[in-house]
């Protein structure tokens, strides 16, 4: 990467270039459908998921219930729609926590350097030394299972990720000419960070954001699957998989459907991330 001399133009034409990218378009379409499904579920679902009609339990997919019914006689399509709400909310807020705390920390460390930087890196070492899943399980076990605690548990591990990305991005910008010029003009470090650093690392953060969003959905599903995420009667995809497990033999569709929902959503987000990074730097397709 050769630093251009003038300040790079931020996101001009970015959207139109992104829209020409196949990964981005597919990913965006998938994600938009999932998000729309979640939004619609606030106003309308085919059936009420809070009403249990045990007599209708475990009906295979049919005309009335396109995806069948679960072990309480609830409509699976409605459950998937409401479940999307939960997955998106948990992952999105967890990303928000990670960005909200991690980005300022990373920018601060890059701007100040020295002891602050060192402290941040050691904090990162500490958090990364705990397997995220294990710690999330501990946190939810201590503070009780539930969507809020799942958000916190996942969010905490997003903090060092965003801190690291924004620090690296900011560090590469500080020695550049347009920043040096601003400093010479007497601008403070905070102002420079807000005016120049943040806009220039926004795309980087966006890519990381979609990755963490996707990971958050997987993590939430895992936590709910072991009973530590969203609690019944709140429908959740991971929880549905847990309930399906012992009924695999009798009704495999109960496990297949929520699994597909997770995969499609995660896939959509990852494709968006790929699309954006391709658009930013088409030469380098280095993201794993």
């Amino acid at each position: 990467m050769n630093p251009p001399l003038s300040e790079p133009e931020v996101s001009a034409g970015f959207l139109s270039r992104a829209l020409a990218n196949r990964s981005f378009v597919i990913g965006f379409t998938i994600t938009a459908i999932v998000a729309a499904m979640a939004l619609v579920s606030f106003f309308w679902t085919p059936y009420d998921v809070t009403r249990l009609i045990v007599a209708d339990r475990m009906q295979p997919p049919s005309f009335e219930h396109p995806l069948g019914t679960d072990h309480f006689g609830r409509d699976m399509l409605s459950m998937i729609m409401v479940g999307a709400r939960n997955s998106i909310a948990v992952a999105l807020v967890a990303v928000g926590i990670g960005m909200g705390i991690g980005v300022p920390l990373g920018c601060w460390a890059a701007a100040r350097g020295g002891i602050v930087d060192e402290a941040l890196m050691r904090f990162n070492d500490l958090v990364f030394a705990f397997p995220a899943l294990l710690s999330a399980i501990m946190i939810t076990a201590i503070f009780g299972p539930g969507a809020i605690n799942a958000i916190i548990a996942i969010g905490i591990f997003n903090i060092p990720v965003f801190a690291r990305v924004s620090r690296a991005g900011a560090l590469s910008l500080w020695p550049r000419e347009f920043i040096l010029a601003s400093r010479a003009a007497g601008k403070g470090k905070v102002l420079i960070t807000v005016e120049h650093i943040l806009p220039n690392i926004a795309n980087l953060l966006l890519v990381q954001g979609t990755i963490q969003f996707a990971l958050g959905i997987l993590a939430e599903a895992g936590l709910s699957y072991v009973g530590l995420g969203a609690q019944p009667p709140m429908p959740s995809w991971g929880r549905m998989l847990f309930d399906a497990q012992t009924r695999m033999v009798v009704a495999p569709y109960l496990a297949i459907i929520p699994g597909m929902a997770i995969i499609v959503t995660v896939l959509g987000l990852n494709l968006i991330g790929d699309g954006i990074s391709d658009t930013l730097d088409p030469k380098l397709r280095r993201r794993p």
């Binding site: 996707a214 997987l218 599903a221 895992g222 699957y225 991971g238 998989l241 399906a244 497990q245 695999m248 033999v249 495999p252 496990a255 297949i256 699994g259 997770i262 995969i263 499609v264 995660v266 896939l267 990852n270 494709l271 790929d274």
Partner: peptide, 22 residues
């Protein structure tokens, strides 16, 4: 591989059990 990254391993495990064990 894009698909592989998106698959929750425990769900994949359930499918494996169903196919190969049951």
């Amino acid at each position: 591989s894009q698909l592989g990254v998106a698959v929750p391993n425990f769900w994949f495990a359930l499918l494996l059990v169903y196919v190969f064990a049951v």
